[in-house]
Nucleic acid binder design. Structure first.
Lengths: 329, 329
DNA sequence: GCTTGTGGTGGTAGCGCTCTCAGGTGTGCG
DNA sequence: CGCACACCTGAGAGCGCTACCACCACAAGC
């Protein structure tokens, strides 16, 4: 490790110091093609002496591969880019991409404007796209030139592999737990209507309710605590006999609990509450929240790796979600 | 908007279609130098017809500027890259960088190995660095070639502008609130010792305790809920008469409250608890958490913009932190 | 007339890297 | 010996873009 030169070393510098040609140095560094042990050794010591770091931009330019992975989030406004879930996806992606010399970008895909994807497809610096909050409209609009470089966190399609938590199973476990502990008048606070991936837990809820011969009680939400709070108030008004509320996210569940507390309803005494995600704080509150695990980091990591690798991924990869039974239900 | 061609359009294609030279097309698109209104119009329509998107890698290569902004996090292990705080910084940075065609990378800087920064300085694809969890050791090791392209979230130095929340003020407000509501035996759970930016709230605590003639009661923590939980247990053992615990983060505060509840101590009846950050859930729990606001997103955004702009930023930019008085204190 | 701009243009040299290709050395084999 | 077939090397052609420079037309000023 030498002192930092004013001008960073280039491959040319390395080759000169090692007494070989640029080609040979390139071959040694990239690990492609033949190189004698002698040349290999001279080049590697030269790299160390100069503190050489390859320039990904140049490499990308000549190889024709991108230097950026785009996390594209569909939503009504650009504000969707500010939510913790998106941040976590970006953070996990960045962690995976950095060693590969790839940067991460964050794009908003306005609902109803699937043409935005064309723009990404034509940007040669984009090596791949991770879709978040996928809509069917979006899946239908994937440009051919982008195929094989797109994955979806949430629902996918024949052309777009999907990575997601097995929230049908997780929701099922939680709902069966509610049923097993004697709850029969179970309401659910869902996610946004337009979001296909919030439908799977709803389907699980509907299926189980029908199977058990129980009435469906569904309220729309948006994953937020504030919406959970208002939805719970409405639930109490519409169904005074409700004895359990299942929320699509832990945030929502905390909002629900706050509303119930405001109304003097005991949790879990009068109404049991369960969430989804198992965020760290779920274990800390009073009552501690019953929920199902949601390995967002692992999902995002797998999605980013799939894009980076470029190998065709399985059409659907589901990550297990397990019941975490605590005090609230 | 045309159908996506298999081969994305290049500047050459645009120039040919517009009937001008590459130079002229480049000038129009980049908005530099002269161009007649006629040429300008022909080029812009050609760009639209072809759906041309410039290749940032090529642009970066020739301009000699980087295509990646690095969020560099110091810590004992690479696990620091997985915390929500870091994710939020990366997410906010990505939001700022994307329109500029810059990607975001996430690096771990192992404690005690300041040479890692040299690596970043020599990477020509790096346009700047945002330091997180800055240490003095790190600040002393900033390579000259990186100066003007580094900012720090947390403490800075003469060479590194810093962006941070005014946590001294925030901590002061919270502590004065505790004092004003009659608390006198106030303990504090801090952050990691090696982290300079966790020292400022501690200094505020010490200053106020000394000023009020009260004893200092400090316990080390690490921002986590788990550590807050164990620290609170220790606080009760060491100082049975404690009547308030101030935690360096909301997560920690929730851990503290959980421990107190386990011990049968009432909050805020017996012991008041306050945190720092004002995370969304702070308003939802029972009791709702008294805390001070912490605009992480705004801080990270400002830091990223400062790096991207490259203009010398103010040595220190502090974002205000305000008391949010709720039930827990 | 000639200079001296001023607005506009195209040619061309790279930025740093990879990759193909032609051309070396050796070895083994008929 | 000739030939094939390793292994190994360096020259050179770009990837797509910008920046520098030379150039041209035209107008204004001595």
């Amino acid at each position: 490790m030498t002192t930092a030169a004013h001008r960073p070393a280039t491959l040319e510098d390395v080759a000169r110091l090692a007494g070989v040609s640029r080609s040979t140095a390139s071959r040694v560094i990239a690990g492609t093609g033949f190189a004698s042990p002698y040349a290999r050794e001279r080049v590697t010591t030269a790299v160390e002496r100069l503190g050489y770091v390859p320039n990904p931009a140049a490499r990308a330019l000549v190889r024709g591969v991108g230097v950026r992975l785009v996390v594209a989030v569909a939503g009504a406004s650009a504000a969707v880019l500010d939510c913790p879930y998106v941040h976590q996806v970006v953070g996990s992606a960045a962690r995976v991409c950095t060693p590969a010399g790839v940067g991460v970008a964050l794009h908003w895909l306005p609902l109803g404007q699937p043409g935005e994807l064309d723009q990404l497809a034509r940007d040669r610096s984009v090596c791949g796209v991770v879709l978040v909050n996928t809509t069917n409209e979006l899946l239908d609009a994937i440009p051919r030139s982008l195929q094989g470089r797109v994955v979806s966190i949430g629902v996918g399609s024949s052309a777009v592999p999907s990575f997601d938590v097995d929230n049908a199973a997780g929701a099922g476990e939680v709902l069966r737990h509610l049923y097993a502990t004697g709850r029969r008048r179970i309401a659910m606070v869902t996610g946004p209507q337009w979001l296909p991936c919030s439908r799977r837990p709803v389907d699980a809820y509907r299926g189980l309710m029908r199977q058990a011969g129980l009435p469906e009680r569904i309220l729309p939400g948006d994953f937020s605590a504030a919406r959970g709070r208002s939805a719970a108030g409405e639930a109490l008004r519409r169904w005074p006999d409700v004895d359990a509320i299942y929320a699509i996210s832990d945030e929502t569940a905390f909002g629900v609990i706050a509303a119930l507390r405001d109304e003097g309803v005991r949790v879990p005494g009068d109404v049991a509450v369960a969430g989804f995600d198992d965020i760290p704080l779920a274990a800390m509150t009073a009552p501690a929240l019953t929920t199902a695990s949601h390995p967002v980091g692992r999902i995002a990591t797998a999605a980013a790796i799939a894009v980076l690798d470029g190998r065709p991924a399985a059409p659907v990869t589901l990550f297990p979600s397990a019941l975490v039974a605590r005090a609230s239900a």
